[in-house]
Simulated assay, not measured.
Amino acid sequence: MSITASSTLTKEIEMSFQHHGDNPFEQEQSRLIERLKQQQEGMAKREYPNGRLNASDDGEVAFKIGGDGERGVVVIDFGKPVTWVGMTPQQAVEMAQLMIKNAREVSKEPLRVVIG
């Protein structure tokens, strides 16, 4: 995962549900950026790192999570139309942490997180 500048988002995080961690390798980051670009162009090959869930499963999808401080919003960009996503419990926790981190960075008021 890396943080890069964008014209609309102040910070973006590139990641994939199947490939995540605190210190990804540069090569993996390049792969995710290329995958997102291929998705945007409609050229991404379908891959199923954790197997196919059902007939409507289109496979792995790369995405960006970023915060827009000027507008006070957190944005998830899949680079293409997406109806649903599935992930492991650990991936769900990591996505939630990224969402909360970005929410805190763009919020003008203190935020409270309640679990349970």
Rank of each mutant, 00 (worst) to 15 (best):
E109L: 11
G59R: 00
L98W: 04
R35F: 07
G42S: 00
R71D: 11
G21I: 05
A62I: 00
T83P: 02
K108E: 15
D68E: 07
G21R: 01
V93F: 10
D68S: 09
R31M: 12
S2G: 08
D57S: 07
R31H: 08
I33R: 10
I76L: 07
E70Y: 06
Q97R: 14
Q39A: 01
V73W: 00
T4F: 10
S30P: 00
P49D: 04
E70D: 14
Y48K: 08
A96P: 00
E60W: 04
F25V: 09
Q90I: 13
T83V: 07
N102C: 12
A96S: 12
G79N: 03
A96L: 12
K45P: 09
N23T: 14
W84D: 14
I115E: 10
S30T: 04
M99C: 12
M87Y: 06
V106C: 06
K45T: 15
P81F: 02
H20S: 14
Q29N: 11
E14S: 09
I76V: 14
E41R: 03
M1G: 13
H20E: 12
D57H: 06
G21F: 05
M95V: 13
V93S: 12
L9H: 06
V73H: 04
G66R: 00
Q90M: 14
D58R: 09
K108G: 14
T83D: 13
M99I: 15
E26T: 10
V73P: 04
L32A: 11
Q91N: 09
L111V: 04
F17N: 05
G79D: 10
V85H: 00
P81G: 05
M15G: 12
D57W: 00
D77T: 03
L98D: 11
G66K: 00
E28V: 09
K80P: 02
S30K: 12
F78A: 07
S107G: 02
M95R: 04
